[in-house]
């Protein structure tokens, strides 16, 4: 399967979980505009899904698109669909069908029917990777971010850390308090 198919699904997913937010930017400053697509978190998903013992990037993408089809069916539509072709405002509702395991098994490929835990595992993992990819230091690896882990070098201070006010790793903080709690 083409990486494009997988990346389209992953891009639609990460953009739903951590979108660009012009509204927040207006209130709190421009740094708050950027979202998961700006940090290419879809590539983090692809890398990690491809580096487990049973590569599951394709299955995860199939699952996301099956959720889109399920959502369309639930709205009374028929036919084919994919997460990236749903309007952004409806994508979270489609993903919710996975979170709540409200999928019609007939819309799922064979792998999911043979392994009842697979959908739960992939659904949990998609979100875990998205939050890790965005809020950890990963994006700061810049041009080395898709290298093998031993060959990554921190090139930038991650934009997401700026958004949340995390100063980055430290050797110590002068924050000891003297409080009698007894």
């Amino acid at each position: 399967m083409q990486n494009d198919y997988i990346l389209n699904a992953f891009q639609a997913y990460v953009d739903t979980i951590i979108p660009r937010t012009p509204g927040l930017a207006e209130v709190y400053g421009y740094i708050q505009y950027y979202g998961a697509l700006d940090l290419q978190v879809d590539q983090f998903l692809l890398y990690n899904f491809e580096h487990v013992s049973m590569s599951s990037a394709e299955l995860a993408a199939l699952l996301l698109n099956a959720a889109a089809v399920q959502w369309l069916v639930n709205q009374g539509y028929e036919g084919r669909g994919s997460l990236d072709l749903l309007p952004p405002s409806d994508r979270l509702s489609a993903i919710m069908l996975l979170e709540l395991q409200q999928m019609d098994p007939r819309l799922l490929s064979e792998e999911f029917l043979n392994d009842p835990g697979l959908m739960v595992m992939l659904t949990d993992t998609l979100l875990y990777y998205t939050l890790q990819g965005y809020y950890s230091e990963w994006a700061g690896y810049g041009t080395t971010r898709l290298n093998p882990p031993q060959e990554r070098v921190l090139e930038y201070f991650p934009l997401s850390w700026e958004q949340v006010g995390y100063p980055g790793p430290s050797l110590g903080y002068r924050v000891l308090r003297t409080v009698d709690i007894s």
């Binding site: 487990v52 890790q132 230091e137 990963w138 093998p148 882990p149 990554r152 790793p169």
Partner: peptide, 30 residues
Amino acid sequence: TDLENDMNDLVTGKLRWGPADRNRPPWTRK
């Protein structure tokens, strides 16, 4: 390195459940 993805990523982290060689996948549990 104090970096949370480098240290604790479930797939590639130095402190994962998997072999020392990070180019190889973590060990599978279901």
